[in-house]
Design a protein around this nucleic acid. Sequence first.
DNA 1: CGCCAGATTGATACACATCAATTCTCGTGG
DNA 2: CCACGAGAATTGATGTGTATCAATCTGGCG
Lengths: 247, 247
Amino acid sequence: MYAITATTKAAPIAPFALRAQAPEARDERGAGEGRAPARMAGTFSGTAAATLKFDRNETIYYEGDEAEACYKVVSGMVRLCKLTEDGRRQITAFLMPGDMFGWTDLETHSFSAEAVTEARVEKVSRARIEDGMRTNPAMGRGFLSMISSQLAAAHDHLLLLGRMTAAERIAWFLLDLSKRAKAAGMKAGALDLVMNRKDIADYLGLTIETVSRMLNQMKRKGLIGLATPDHVEFTRAGALERLAMAA
Amino acid sequence: MYAITATTKAAPIAPFALRAQAPEARDERGAGEGRAPARMAGTFSGTAAATLKFDRNETIYYEGDEAEACYKVVSGMVRLCKLTEDGRRQITAFLMPGDMFGWTDLETHSFSAEAVTEARVEKVSRARIEDGMRTNPAMGRGFLSMISSQLAAAHDHLLLLGRMTAAERIAWFLLDLSKRAKAAGMKAGALDLVMNRKDIADYLGLTIETVSRMLNQMKRKGLIGLATPDHVEFTRAGALERLAMAA
DNA sequence: CGCCAGATTGATACACATCAATTCTCGTGG
DNA sequence: CCACGAGAATTGATGTGTATCAATCTGGCG
């Protein structure tokens, strides 16, 4: 299963360190720009957070599981996904360090969470979060901020799945990942695709063959470099952005 | 434009009447069941809410507008939509009385809101909401609850757009609308499609022709009755549910 | 060095889009 | 109350983007 790598401190109701809790400290990103699931700069940890480690492709929780905790990615990448009875899969988000997931007011999780790469994840029980919110209203604001960003990202994704062509989806995907990686401190101009073609396909509502064809077509056109299957160079970012246009 | 039909009372920081603010009063709907954008039973009104009236197809606000207020549908139906530069449209939600929209922590709205039918809508300024949340932590909880339900609904919608066939999308759509109408007190077993085929198509990521063909195909198969283009009878709900399967 | 999962590439199929007429439906005015 | 007209819906013929099926290639690893 998983290993607890940090001790769960017993501090009863410690305040969470949150950014963007004051109204004037709102997220300034413009609409239409790469919309990442919101990050909370402060960590859970130092309070009642346990840090868990998951192997590649290990499941963090399943859709339908009781929603008794909330999580934050510390390192690695996490995917959120939904499955149909007959095995079709839709990945609703790829999460990077700082991104939170699993919070819901419903009884059960409406999607499962899996580690794309080896990943470390902080976990805080829902009970503690509710305690925290009672004590510290700013914490509720932080969550609200996070979830509303995630909702905006989901809406972008809906437009992508409902109305964009395969080429547009790929271009958008590459640029979105790139922006988020940059925001997380990675160097711009290049991108490592840590997920495989099936993951990309299931995120974009395509097949692995179409993903592969589109990537290689972009490579042939000189829009991107693709020295290995998982290393993308943005040789002509402008042209890519024109392809991903929309909104 | 629009008419203010109710006066904006000047009560400075009145508490909002919210349901589901206590942890034990959580939404009990099971996962996978028709997931409507969350409703808050209590109204904005009695506080700083103005009730506005919009005509059919009138815009409530545009994507990109400054997000300075939050809204709740009082009567009629509202659609949320996003557009691409070249006019492709994705409707992200149809909202019924009780549903809230427009809350975000971002500077601007990430989708526009339009009246599908003539609609009455309550509007509360963001400043007032933030005041209210500072004063009344339960209100923040109510918003959190609402948005997390909307996020779950968006995830269902992603699976629909990314991985379901036209017939499955239509079946799901009809059943979802029906469940929500029932939850709002309408009679079960039948459904009035107040939106036109273009709206349905733009919600489901299809064309009007495909929507029409699928509906009439279901009619021919005896799955639904369709006496007029906008009145659906659920003659064999079980078979429809099997079609909409998933999750 | 050879295996093998993942990626690529090719040939073909098909679901849905597109283009193009009709045919309804319902509001309006005689 | 009925005829009219126009927008909406339906239906048909055809096109096409992506899926599917089927090899083949590649690169990391034992």
